[in-house]
Design a protein around this nucleic acid. Sequence first.
DNA 1: TACGCATATGAATATTAACGCATATGACTG
DNA 2: CAGTCATATGCGTTAATATTCATATGCGTA
Lengths: 106, 106
Amino acid sequence: MNINAYDCGSVKHLSTLFKLLAEPNRLKILCSLGLECRPVSDIIESTELSQTNVSFHLRALREAGLVKPERKGAFIYYCLPDPELLRLLGDFRHWLEEHQKEKTIV
Amino acid sequence: MNINAYDCGSVKHLSTLFKLLAEPNRLKILCSLGLECRPVSDIIESTELSQTNVSFHLRALREAGLVKPERKGAFIYYCLPDPELLRLLGDFRHWLEEHQKEKTIV
DNA sequence: TACGCATATGAATATTAACGCATATGACTG
DNA sequence: CAGTCATATGCGTTAATATTCATATGCGTA
């Protein structure tokens, strides 16, 4: 990598994170959580995904520490342990909106 | 999507963007560009990827408007039209570093 | 302890994306 | 205008990832 290259830190870690966020349904799940803690059944309802599929994606997010499960009786509530992530998503969203005015991202 | 859900804007567009950033080699390419414009041959050298592969990823980035080609004689120089993207990457990087201190993202 | 509901997991399939090879295009140079 | 260098593209193969179905687990309650 050349001398003027931008230091992106660990490309491997960054791409792992982006890969998690790149799946539309995972993104939906994160957004549906927002700042609240919700049981899986809620997530299933608001995302309109199959139970299996939600569970599958929650596992990925959980293993990466992007969501945190907390059992309450028969239910398991999920939340974002660090809401700062939502801010970052918002930043990207804004950038995308600005960016789209000029170039077109499909 | 429920009333308290976080508004992520267009999940589709966001995920398209993240998918582009999720590929380690594409990320490498972006980082190797940094703020400078460089010919493809430079990128090939600094990323140590095959010519075909670099060209393949550049196409994806180009079509999304994340990089912009500019012909100079026999060479085609690529640059980031909006360096703000690097700042966003940096934000994620920092978040990741902070985040890792507590949870472990694999 | 037996049953029902909430969630997780395993296995099989479907879909998508990366990569390399061969070849094409487009520009400069003699 | 023929040859060479830089880059792009089409195609086939392989690898990764999402999705579903069927089933298991774990908690609460009768």
